[in-house]
């Protein structure tokens, strides 16, 4: 285990760039955005770590999103993701190049990997951070995350161990803009792998055909809760979503009632979303729901209870029965968005 003084000589901010089949998880770019600010605050370098097979083409992308440097490890064993070789590669890089901060997306892959890596390194790991800042005095990473089902927020420090590791959920940090011609440094690291150390073989990956998988990237979400009352009533929401080109979403209560499949659930145990507009229809606004959608630019709430907590955070609220309000909204959007004579 690292001693208390283990943090000396660690420098720089790293972001793990998650790719599957050559496709980068957008959260990795979001993290480069967040990492840029941390690196600037510390006056250090921002680096991306790219593991895989045949992924060198992604290096320029990482530069474009703000990485000063990219560590690249390529090997056939790193083709399909398996925990053991990925964890070993990342651990080895950390031990060699000593970053002070290591960020990963809180995706299933990122969580799978970060837990293994932090354990091997014997360092702290904070999951699902919603805010990352630097304490200018101590240069420590302040990792803020919801705890106890979102009822409280906690700021967590990793004082003496390095790197300070954190995961961040997709869509919590804003996507940075892409700088087309930005270039950086490439550090290609050679490591030897053998297939046996993977301990596992991926047999097949099956795409689940479901629109809701795009929920976290949707720009407009029309979400319904228990107040919608029935599966049939969701038709009204679907019509509104239709006219706006948006996606449906749901509270846990609506999912538990079986009105929409679990993939549509927004919130603490569902997806975190960050759309431009979030319509909350018949949703009371329990904290577990709010933590998943309060990053929306605009929140519109429709609820017949003027005391519903959702109104406290909604940009705009309409008090009324959604069965009247939602069709009226649909009709109005139809009218006002229709290409008029002018």
């Amino acid at each position: 285990m690292p001693a208390d003084t283990a943090n000396t000589g660690y420098r720089g901010v790293w972001v793990f760039i998650e790719q599957v089949g050559g496709e980068v998880a957008p959260v990795s770019w979001e993290l480069l955005g967040a990492g840029r600010q941390l690196a600037d605050a510390l006056g250090v370098e921002l680096a991306g770590v790219l593991l895989g097979q045949g992924v060198a083409g992604l290096v320029t992308e990482a530069w474009a999103y703000g990485a000063d440097k990219v560590y690249l490890v390529e090997d056939p064993v790193l083709g399909p993701y398996r925990t053991a070789p990925y964890a070993r590669a990342l651990v080895q890089l950390v031990k060699e190049y000593k970053p002070e901060i290591l960020l990963l997306g809180a995706t299933s892959l990122g969580r799978d990997l970060s837990g293994a890596v932090a354990t091997s390194l014997g360092t702290g790991l904070t999951a699902d951070c919603t805010s990352l800042t630097i304490d200018p005095e101590t240069r420590l990473l302040e990792q803020t995350r919801p705890a106890f089902g979102g009822n409280v927020m906690a700021t967590i420090l990793c004082r003496r161990h390095r790197p300070q590791m954190a995961t961040v959920r997709p869509r919590v940090m804003p996507m940075p803009s892409r700088q087309e011609d930005r270039r950086g440094e490439l550090v290609r690291v050679d490591m030897a792998f053998n297939e046996a150390e993977a301990r596992a073989e991926v047999i097949e990956i099956i795409e689940e055909k479901n629109k809701a998988i795009y929920l976290d990237r949707a720009e407009i979400i029309v979400a319904g809760g228990r107040g919608v009352g029935s599966k049939e009533n969701f038709r009204l929401l679907e019509e509104l979503a239709g006219v706006l080109g948006g996606t449906l979403g749901a509270s846990r209560a609506a999912v538990e009632a079986g009105w929409l499949p679990p993939e549509y659930q927004v919130g603490q145990t569902g997806t975190t979303v960050r759309p431009k507009v979030y319509f909350a229809i018949g949703i009371s606004g329990a904290i577990q729901h709010l933590v998943g959608m309060q990053g929306a630019d605009v929140i519109v709430a429709v609820n017949n209870d003027p005391q519903a907590p959702i109104f406290k955070i909604a940009t705009y609220g309409i008090v009324g029965d959604f069965r009247e309000v939602v069709p009226a909204l649909t009709a109005e959007f139809h009218r006002q968005l229709a290409p008029g004579p002018g």
């Binding site: 904070t126 927020m153 967590i156 003027p306 705009y316 309409i318």
Partner: peptide
Amino acid sequence: SPTSVRRIFAPPARPGGEIIPGEPR
């Protein structure tokens, strides 16, 4: 335990909203 809690606090409230008055339509 390498991690320690510096502080816990209630989640920040998003600045409250505006109720649009009037009949549904």
